[in-house]
Design a protein around this nucleic acid. Structure first.
Lengths: 195, 195, 195, 195
DNA sequence: GATGAATGAGGGTTCATTCAT
DNA sequence: TATGAATGAACCCTCATTCAT
């Protein structure tokens, strides 16, 4: 008696349990036992019914984060009219409250640290940021001269990633409002002569 | 017959072996066995002669990275004349080639990811960035109006951290030259009206 | 499909494996590997399913010994009519064959030696001997004058502990029969004027 | 330039350091590092200049304890006139304050626990107690009938060992005075008909 | 005589994974 | 589908021992 929806539900549960455990645990590595317990499942091999192994679960978790983030970006951009609106939309998506929970930020940081030695994580990150960077570039192409596009897109990305990183270090020092303000301030200053 | 320098030498060796292993290993965690092997020592407990335990070694490694970085900043800043020179000096120090080896950047990323759950790492990071941010603030106080100082210093830090992060993800896409250029471009644009 | 009895069974198996290993091993410390092997389990971390850690296993083992001993005492005392019968019952329980196997005696000795530096063992020992000493005191109160009770109870305990100790050193020199005889001889001589 | 006394002095230092460490350490096993530190020597192989290895040091320590104890017994017995005086002398030696320091008692307990699996310790213990038991037997032969001698000597030994054991468990509950009193009370009660 | 650097075996413990139920 | 018993590898750490100085 297949209940096709159950598997999807359980997968989501385990993925969010993973994010929670990354955030809560004092350990560097989330253990399957901790994740299982968080999801209300038995410690043993339940995870193996839904994921091939731990690495599979971790990749799925990163993809979930990436998907949520890209969804936020796409949603925000969709209603943007002008190029500058688009850029603002990307910035706002970056610092949307759904993307800036301590859980999400900590989980991102966790994955980022594994990128240099894990191509799967590197690929997900690469695909994710390419989406965003291309969004920025398409907007910038209408504003600045062609040879400035790459640097500017990369610069805006850097500001956002940097603030996210610093947010992960100390979520009290910088909040979402401030992050948005700083990013837009620097970006708009740079684009001032064009607009 | 005490050889007083030996301990210092061995400690440095082990610290740099640690950085190497973080960079090279496919594993999330550098093992003491791998570090010992990298340093040409026996797999066993040699590390215990020089460090209290693994955590002690890791903290010492992070302090070594931080010390090297702050030394670079101090050296660069020392010869800066004007406030804007100081800011440039900080930026140049950030992207000095000694600070941007793949090993160093990967190691920093490794430590950053542990900050949320490791107060020792958090403290070292906090002390390090405070030094730099204060250097920036002192320079900015002479340039911009008072209420802008904090945001601007934080913004410059974010650009640098962001580029460093992206450099850690993919050292081919962004090199040191480009990073310096992008940072200065955004910073100078923002300060343009004042200078 | 839960098999509720299995955990209890396995725990007992491991506890008795521990006692065996203490007796058999030439080493001062029974290793978990040896205990696992004795219980027919894998060398690794099976013990962790049933005990929190080694200390937990060791304490459980001591409690098992204590429980068995106190059960023997309670059983013997239950059918005693007169005070002197009670005292004899305690002595007989002390030297019941089930309590005087080389394994049991060696294990007791092992725990005793750790009492000065291990409060958990000290507490178990203390609780155990308090039971017995109180049993003796209740009987003695009906026989001797009040101010003699404490010394006498302590004296009888000392004889029994001393013989047990000497039995642990060399189980050939003193057997259970002799131990019982010596204890009763000394005790009855002391109580002679009263009975 | 041989200084023959130095070796003896250092050996004693190390032996007493060993006793101290057994008493002080919270660990089950005294480590050579701890013993060396206690004796003010380097952690490394200094001990190997004076002892073949750890086992050699431990055996020497037990022999020191045994020698001190037998010396006390011999000294006390030497001035005893009557058989009963001799028995009292043995009892007093057993509970001489020099033999009942927490350090000594804990060390004895430590060695006792290893007797079942260490023939060297067993031999030292056996030789030691034989001395004492023979002293008792020689005295008892003049007092009681022949067939009672063995049991009585063994009984007196048991009382003394038992009280020592209980003293090791909790040095506050039973002190030297009480131990002497209990031992003599039981012994004299048993011998009452003869004297 | 004395040091302490270095070794390497072995300990307890954790944990991903498998599999019978 | 779900459990949890069981495995075995790998980790950090301790410690007796050796040896160059």
């Amino acid at each position: 008696m297949a209940r096709p929806g159950l598997e999807v539900i359980r997968k989501k549960e385990l993925i969010h349990a993973t994010i929670s455990v990354i955030y809560e645990t004092g350990l560097a590595e989330p253990t399957l036992a901790a994740i299982s317990a968080r999801a209300g499942l038995s410690s043993g091999g339940m995870i193996n019914h839904y994921f091939k192994n731990k690495q599979d679960l971790m990749e799925s978790t990163m993809r979930e984060l990436a998907g949520s983030f890209l969804g936020e970006v796409a949603f925000n951009v969709s209603s943007a009219k002008t190029p500058i609106d688009k850029i603002n939309a990307v910035i706002d998506a970056n610092f949307a409250s759904s993307q800036c929970t301590p859980e999400a930020v900590t989980a991102w940081l966790w994955f980022w640290a594994r990128i240099p030695t894990n191509t799967a994580y590197a690929d997900i990150e690469s695909a994710t940021e390419n989406h965003v960077i291309n969004e920025l570039k398409r907007a910038l192409e209408d504003i600045v001269s062609e040879h400035e596009v790459d640097d500017l897109a990369e610069g805006i990305m850097a500001i956002m990633y940097g603030l996210w990183l610093r947010f992960a270090f100390d979520s009290k020092k910088i909040n979402v409002e401030v992050a948005r303000r700083i990013t837009k301030d620097l970006t708009h200053s740079r684009l001032r002569t064009y607009i």
